[in-house]
């Protein structure tokens, strides 16, 4: 399965100020082990990547490509391959609202989202890691370890 995600920075003033950076990582689960996926990086191509960008960040940060073009932005497309389920981790820094943290998305082997966090409604990190680890079938410690939280 092809894995695609994005890292981006955006700084806008209109219609409202946004100063957000998101750095994405992806982890594959194979034979009960979670490992970082090797992702290649390329430039963003509007016609090809717009929809995937919106799918990635519409339900997590309520951010769409249309928000980016309202100001200065930089997007990198990250792509790789995986066989089983994939955990995506978006580390963010919202410098205007002084909020930082990490949101998760789990996609199944067909690429369908089976778990996703939302920046406005997310539960405490420990609880989310617990949920994610149960879905992936790995231990909490393993998830924490690959995320660098341990």
């Amino acid at each position: 399965m092809k894995v695609k995600t994005f890292s981006f920075k955006v700084d806008t003033r209109d219609p409202r100020p946004i100063r957000l950076s998101v750095s994405a990582r992806a982890f594959g689960v194979e034979a009960g082990k979670i490992r970082p996926l090797r992702l290649s990086e390329r430039e963003f191509v509007e016609d090809e990547d717009l929809l995937d960008f919106d799918m990635e960040f519409g339900d997590t940060f309520n951010i769409a490509f249309n928000d980016l073009i309202h100001g200065d932005f930089d997007v990198k497309v990250l792509e790789g391959e995986a066989k089983g389920m994939v955990l995506k981790a978006y580390t963010f820094n919202d410098s205007l609202r002084e909020r930082r943290g990490v949101l998760f998305r789990v996609v199944d082997e067909n690429g369908a989202t089976i778990y996703v966090d939302n920046v406005y409604f997310s539960e405490p990190l420990e609880k989310r890691i617990g949920k994610v680890s149960r879905i992936l079938g790995v231990t909490v410690d393993e998830v924490k370890q690959v995320l660098g939280l341990q």
């Binding site: 209109d14 219609p15 409202r16 406005y120």
Partner: peptide
Amino acid sequence: RKYQHDGKGNL
């Protein structure tokens, strides 16, 4: 524009 507030979307 100074009064703009965005919503939190829908779950």
